[in-house]
């Protein structure tokens, strides 16, 4: 055990201040301290991506980041993407195209996909497969995840065009 330190992070637009041991992993800060249980724990070695969140605009696996490293950062989790009345196009697309089964990887998968489409709004199938390779799904075989992301990209691009 080590001395508790003072940390301040922003999660889904809400500022949070608390005392924690620096060794606390961000995923536990989110899930156990702040009750943000959308991100999940699958491997503790950065391989599966179930814990994926967005930190200062980048996809991060929160199971291998200490809370100390997240101090002062702006964090978005699945809970900050879309709302029950206005789902994000990716959330709609995953439902529409059967892009999930047990749902355990889904929060990380969708969180990562939001960044992928920001980085590259018109990805090819190959680019989607490569860009999503940090997120493991044990149920779907990825085919419908790829389809969901393609559909969401088309939807988002059409909406953008309509707005312009």
């Amino acid at each position: 055990m080590s001395q508790k330190q003072h940390y301040k992070i922003t999660v889904n637009g809400k500022e949070e201040e608390f005392l924690a041991e620096p060794r606390e992993l961000l995923i536990y800060t989110l899930r156990e301290r702040l009750n943000v249980t959308g991100p999940h724990i699958g491997c503790e070695t950065s391989h599966c991506g179930a814990c994926t969140v967005t930190i200062d605009g980048k996809s991060v696996k929160s199971c291998t980041m200490f809370v100390a490293q997240a101090d002062g950062k702006d964090i978005t989790t699945i809970e900050g993407i879309g709302s029950p009345d206005a789902l994000h196009p990716l959330q709609e697309a995953f439902k529409e195209h059967h892009g999930l089964q047990c749902g355990y990887c889904t929060p990380g998968m969708i969180t990562r996909a939001t960044k992928l489409l920001e980085e590259n709004p018109t990805p090819t199938e190959e680019e989607i497969r490569f860009g999503m390779a940090g997120n493991i799904c044990r149920c779907t075989g990825y085919q419908n995840i790829v389809k969901s992301i393609q559909a969401a990209a088309a939807e988002m691009n059409a909406a953008k065009e309509a707005a312009e």
Binding site: T37, G38, P39, T77, I78, E79, G82, P84, L87, Q91, F94, K95, E96, H98, L100, G103, T106, P107, I110
Partner: peptide, 11 residues
């Protein structure tokens, strides 16, 4: 379409 998906896609 699956009735389970609303909760899973929203974490």
């Amino acid at each position: 379409k699956r009735v389970e998906d609303a909760r899973f896609t929203q974490g």
